[in-house]
Every structure is written in C-alpha cells, then in structure tokens.
Amino acid sequence: MEPEESMAVSDFLIKGNLLKQGAEARVYRDTFLGKSTIIKERFPKKYRHPLLDEKLTHRRTVQEVRSIQRCRKAGIPTPVVHFVDYTSHCIFLEDIVDSVTVRDHIVSTQQRPHPGPTLEHLAPLAAKVGQIIAKMHDEDVVHGDLTTSNMLLRTSGYVVGDAAELSLVLIDFGLSYISALPEDKGVDLYVLEKAFLSTHPNTEALFQKLLKSYAASSKKSSAVIKKLDEVRLRGRKRSMVG
C-alpha cells in the first residue's frame, strides 16, 4: 500500500458519514467507485497493550475479509468486499440498502399486535437463520459473534411470514475463523443462543425452531448439536465458587 493511498483512505473517513461507533469499529457510509459503500474502520484501542492491539486489529481485518470471501464463494449472502486497507485497518463493503437487522425486526414484530401468536410470524425467519448458519458451518466458517444484530434482513418486497421471500445477509466476521471442529461450531451456536435469548426475552420456542432447521440443513449437524449440549453444561453451570 502506497502512502498516498493510505492518506486517501483517511480522507474518505473524514468526509464519510459516521453511522455508528460499535465496540471495535467505526462504521461510515460513503460513495466509492460510484457505489454506496460501508467503510468499517478498526481504530486503535488505547486500553490494551500496543503490541496486542496491533495484532488483534490486523488479524480481525484479515479474518473478516477471508471469511466473507469464503462465504460468498459458497453462495452464502454476505456483503461484497470492494477494497481493503491493511494500514489503516479499513474494509470497504457493499452497502446492503433497504435492510434492517434481524434484531430490530424481531423486536418490532413482537411489539406489533398480531392475530395469533407472534412465534408463528417469526418462525420462517428463525428457520432461515438456522439454514444459513448450517450452510456456513458446512463451509467450515465459524462466525465467532453470532447475534441477531449481525444479520440483516432485506426489506424490499418482504412480507412478514412469507418464507420464500426471506433474504438474509450475514455481517461482522471480525471474530470469525476457519475450523472443521464440531466443538467450535457448537460454541458458535451457544454464543447465538445466549445472545438470542438475552436480547429477545421469551423466545425459547423460536430458538428451538432455529436449531431444528439447523439440524435439518447441515450435513454434519449431529456432532455439533451434541457439542452444543456439552458446552451448555460447562463453566458456571457445572460448579461455581467464589
């Protein structure tokens, strides 16, 4: 990377619109090569040792790009990577327009009055999420940070409850890695389970739907689900002192 180009990246960030500051990156929206683009900048974290910070930031940028490419090759919907700058740790990603996070979608669906139980309206979505994660795991991609905030639902042409039209996009692969171990995939599901249930109270049945669909879609699901059961029993749930 030439220094001039690196400077150009920071220019981009200055004139781009800061969308949000997450826990580990700032996210901007701008136009890049004529397209609406999301720029994800991993900025230095001052609380951690500079050597550790550089190592983590670099590794996560690399991992994110690598996993996105691998998913895309396998036909799993993720944003297109337009450009990467490893000096300033910026990734230029396709802007998924007309989309909401699955989190916001679930919350708004739960709040809206419906005829019949809410679960029925969300069940096709849960099944779709299970399917996509199964496909991703079959490619040996472990996401590392599965939450309903890290899944986008395209809203154009989508009618609540219509499974055929559901279009999901997975994002935020910073903690991802490649692994074929059922253990790693089991922990991936465990992380999702906890994030899901703590973010969306009283959705245990919905999450079961998701797992069922995962089990049905993945070729290697039985070992993963077995590990998931094991992981649930670890840590504080096994014994807890202090």
Partner: peptide, 27 residues
C-alpha cells in the same frame, strides 16, 4: 472473581447475563 466471570445488565426487571466465561473464571 475466583469462581465467576460474567457481564450482567439489568433489563426487563431481571438481571441478565450478557457475556461470561465458557470455561474457567478469570480469578
């Protein structure tokens, strides 16, 4: 502590665990 590592927040009238160790405690 020696036996626990949890990130807890209060939401919807309950203490909820958002993050925790999946094996041993930090202490």
């Amino acid at each position: 502590s020696g036996g626990n590592t949890q990130v807890i927040a209060y939401s919807e009238r309950r203490y909820r665990i958002f993050g925790e160790t999946i094996d041993i405690a930090v202490g």
